[in-house]
Every structure is written in structure tokens, then in C-alpha cells.
Design a protein around this nucleic acid. Structure first.
Lengths: 110, 110
DNA sequence: GGCAATACCTTGTTGAATGAGGTATTACTG
DNA sequence: CAGTAATACCTCATTCAACAAGGTATTGCC
């Protein structure tokens, strides 16, 4: 592991969350994650783009070409209804996971 | 995913933590995780034993045969100095990860 | 002109976890 | 006493997310 590695399975949640305020293009999703985590999580492009394609293939995202603020052609991703649903489910899963991990790490024997 | 799936990479931390109060045998490690997480995390034996062997191979654990309370021969695992160190590091990593995830999930746009 | 940042992509490889199989012993229950 | 569950260990094949490292092209800056 290389220090800032992901816990495998948590990237999907981050991507869905990044898109929860409206469409964003892939690169911006990566930037959002990097920025909101203050550089702690830097998503490799080799993880980011395949994940986006996967989510789209599974009907969680819809893609449409658009133009960025800088005038460049970009592929914008948008949550579908199923994507919203998945975001809620994954968020709940994270919270539950976090809770039991805290319990385990806070345990004093047993 | 099957509901109680692990975020890949977090099992190691759970195992190290399970052994932080003294030697335990493999099966007991799995039981401890299942119990302290109230059945939320049920570690597959196909994940548990290879993980123990891996940790041992990397010098995090020392193994020695012993006898359980029930009189059965068991393989007890014990943290090495390096294992204690790793436990601290992995715990810190988890806390940092948790913090940035909470920040991201609690973000209100951006 | 050159370099960084933006914006997209693919391919090969790794390796943790899943799923399913196996052995053997101990303890309970009808 | 047969059958089953729990204990306690193991391995193997498979999967698939992430890593690492490569690529293209455009925009903006010094």
C-alpha cells in the first residue's frame, strides 16, 4: 500500500457523493475528492475513469457531452434515480461500517 | 457485494486489534470480530486464515501451538513488536480515512 | 517554445476477498 | 447412539477494484 490508498469499495460512494449536487465531469470528480479530503485521497485516473464507466454501465449514472467553463468539451455525469438510491445505501453502509469499526477499535478486551 | 462485505484493507486492522490483548487462535479472532461488531462483520474463513498467514509471513504475528480452554490443540497468534507498530499505524490510517470521509459526506456542495 | 494543468482514455498486473470445497474433534440432543 | 451444530484448521479457483504506467489532445501561462 502506498499511504493514501483507498479502502477498496469506498470510491463508489465518493463518486456518487461528488455528483449529488448536479452533473460534473470526471476530472472534476477527482478534483473534488482531492480537495474535500485535503489531498489525503488522490484518486488515480486508472481507478477513477473505470469506476465512472462501471457506474454508468450499472445504470447509476447518465453521461452527456457538454462544455466546461473553460470552453472545452467534457463528458458530464449525472446521478440517475438508481444512483441516488445507491448513494443513500452506500452512505448507510459506510455509517454502519464506521460505527462497528469504532466499537471494535474502542473495545477494551473480550 | 453480499451485504456484510469488508472494505478491502480493513481486515488487517481488525485482526491486529483482536490480538492486542494477548494471544488468540484464529477461530477466536473471527469470533471476536463477529461478536464485537454484533454480527455486522462476519469474516469468511477463506479471508481470515490467509490474512493471518500473510501477517505472520510479514513478521507482524508470531504463532505457537497451544491448547484451548476446551482442551483442543490450537494455533495461537501473538503480536510481534512490528505488529504492535503496524496496529498503531493502521489505526491512525483508519482514523484519518474516517475523518476525510465524514468531511466529504458532510460537505454541502463545492 | 516549453511546461503545467486540464480532460479523457487504456492496458497489464496485483492481490485481498469471495465462495466453495475439505478434514477432524468436541458437545448437544432427540 | 446417530445426527447435527459448533469448534478449529486448511486450500483452491475465481473475481474484480485499485495500482502503475503508459497514451492523446487542448488550454493557459511565462
Amino acid at each position: 500500500m502506498a499511504g493514501s490508498d483507498l479502502y477498496t469499495g469506498s470510491l463508489e460512494l465518493l463518486i456518487l457523493k461528488a455528483l449529488s449536487w448536479g452533473p460534473r465531469h470526471g476530472y472534476a470528480v477527482g478534483r473534488w475528492i482531492r480537495d474535500t479530503t485535503e489531498e489525503v485521497l488522490r484518486i488515480q485516473e486508472g481507478a477513477l475513469y473505470p469506476a465512472l464507466h462501471r457506474l454508468q454501465r450499472n445504470g447509476m449514472l447518465r453521461e452527456e457531452w457538454g462544455v466546461s467553463e473553460t470552453g472545452r468539451e467534457v463528458k458530464n455525469y449525472q446521478l440517475t434515480a438508481a444512483g441516488c438510491c445507491r448513494l443513500r445505501a452506500e452512505t448507510a453502509r459506510w455509517h454502519q461500517y464506521r460505527t462497528v469499526m469504532e466499537t471494535a477499535l474502542g473495545a477494551t478486551g473480550g
